[in-house]
């Protein structure tokens, strides 16, 4: 077993201009993710999930502790990681095609090879024919799929996903879940997946990590040993319900239901 990602004693506080003091968002987070593992993080809204993901990506520096990817300390974003952001973060002045090309451009990859890769992933997320559309001409779900293609096109070893399916309707969401599992199985990528939906976390993951309310701490790590490949039928399995209840309980213990 190789460790892909390791968080060591990560703490982070934001300056709080209102009180002049600090707001502790993450407190002493320790966790490990194995190579090829699919790990989800759930926890109450505002507990620091997005913040933690930003630290892993290298966008924010932790106040204390270290992030290691493949044993190397993370100091800034890198080609081995890509983020699917929570909010609509498509560049509104770029067409679908040029949004997907964006990361490649930043990495200095242009021309035919870049175009072919972009076309491949646009097709994969079912947006062929929409290449020249601007984000405002797409539905929320379509935008989110572009968001996903933009990260996948970078072929990252570690895929960081921040509630990527939150904007989707239930049916599309389930379809995307299955397809994400397919991509994951075919590519062997390591995935760190944030969600509010407990069933989504269980369905997708090898392990669900429950964060406590702010400041975010690892409250518990729940192994999901359900057989793979998984189909949607699994969501009606009693073992699935038992896991749901357990995780639900863990979050509730901690001051309230998950947001939304």
């Amino acid at each position: 077993m190789t460790v892909k990602l390791e968080a060591r004693n990560i703490s982070l506080s934001y300056g709080d201009p209102a009180s002049g003091g600090n707001l502790l968002a993450l407190s002493d987070i320790n966790l490990q993710v194995r190579e090829g593992e699919f790990v989800s993080i759930v926890g109450p809204s505002g507990c620091g999930k997005t913040t933690f993901l930003s630290v892993v990506d290298g966008l924010i520096r932790a106040s204390a502790g270290q992030i290691l990817v493949d044993g190397h300390v993370v100091t800034k974003p890198g080609r081995d990681r890509a983020v699917v952001f929570q909010d609509a973060s498509l560049l509104p002045w770029r067409s679908v095609r040029r949004n997907v090309l964006y990361g490649l451009e930043c990495a200095g990859i242009t021309g035919r090879p870049a175009e072919e890769r972009a076309a491949h992933f646009i097709d994969m997320v079912g947006l062929r024919g929409f290449e020249e559309r601007y984000p405002y001409q797409l539905s929320g779900g379509m935008q989110q799929r572009v968001n996903l293609a933009r990260a996948l096109v970078m072929d990252p070893e570690l895929l960081l996903m921040d509630e990527p399916f939150a904007a989707l309707d239930a049916q599309t969401r389930e379809m995307m879940q299955e397809e994400l599992l397919q991509i994951w199985r075919a590519s062997g990528k390591t995935v760190l997946f944030i969600t509010h939906q407990i069933d989504e976390a269980i369905f997708l993951s090898d392990r669900v990590i429950v964060f406590s309310a702010r400041p975010g701490r690892v409250k518990e790590s729940v192994d999901i040993t359900l057989d793979r490949p998984r189909s949607l039928k699994l969501k009606r399995d009693p073992r699935f319900h038992a896991l749901e209840d357990r995780i639900w309980g863990l979050i509730q213990e901690d001051g309230g239901p998950p947001a939304r």
Binding site: R79, A82, F85, D87, S89, L91, W93, Y102, E105
Partner: peptide, 25 residues
């Protein structure tokens, strides 16, 4: 800020940040 964050996440150079994010906005 969210667009600047995207650029940084993809490792955009300062020049790329200027031409692809700041100027269009």
């Amino acid at each position: 800020a969210r667009f600047v964050r995207v650029a940084r996440s993809f490792g955009a150079s300062r020049l790329k940040l200027l031409t692809s994010i700041i100027l269009p906005g």
